[in-house]
Amino acid sequence: MRNTLPVLTVLLAVVAIWYVAAIGMNSTWVRDQAARSETVLGMGEFVRQTLSLDRPVLPAPHQVAAGLWDGVFGQKITSKRSLVWHGWITLSATLAGFAIGSLAGIGLAVGIVHDRAMNQSVMPWAVASQTVPILAIAPMVIVVFASAGITGLLPKAIIAAWLSFFPVLVGMVKGLRTADAMQLDLMRSWNASRSQVFWRLRLPSSMPYLFASLKVAVAAALVGTIVGELPAGASAGLGARLLSGSYYGQTVQIWAALFVAAALAAGLVFLIGWIERLALRRMGLAR
């Protein structure tokens, strides 16, 4: 691991900057408290207090770490205070939304590549769908579904799908058109049908594009799910955890939930990257 040293250096630098920022941002409160109780704080005591507030403006790394530890390992995983439980709620909706979004993206791409009318009509709508802020759409989706008696995973998955279909659509339109003219001419010389061309040539050659867009899509799906958990009423999931944290000034809770979300996203992207490597190597497309 030649990279260990530079990676550790960057990590240390981030932590150091974080500590300095925490001291700076929490200092006003500590100074005010000291003034109110008319005590004079030594430098050491001052720093210790800025880094151990209950509701700091910016919690120190070790506070977040403690919050994370408590949330992940300190609770029964069925507990409503468990980050594992909230994380699972978010992850399940993310995966459902990712699956719906990816299939929709692939389906639309297939349509666009094969049908002239879809080629001209679908893309503008797809682009338009992404220009509408997701924060504006999410509550509407939740409300519409709730009025139909559907709550829980599905509405959130729809919002996740809304964000994740687009990269897959764009990637697959490109991917399905990546087969070169010579390959298509060969297929034509064999009098291959469109479905034969699709399954034997277009789809396999689109795989590198598919995996690249799936990585973007899965991260987008997670963001969509968390946004879907923000509207009032949601009591479960990392989004709800973020929201309740901000209601009660529980900054440690917010940061802990943020880290779980980031870890989830990183894990999902890594997982797809791993499948990508295996698949492309098997297909001889890895170079």
């Binding site: 010389s189 040539l201 497309l285």
Partner: peptide
């Protein structure tokens, strides 16, 4: 009626 051979082999890597 015919088989066609191009300048590049155009074999599928997979």
């Amino acid at each position: 009626a015919y088989g066609y051979v191009f300048q590049a082999p155009g074999l599928y890597p997979w």
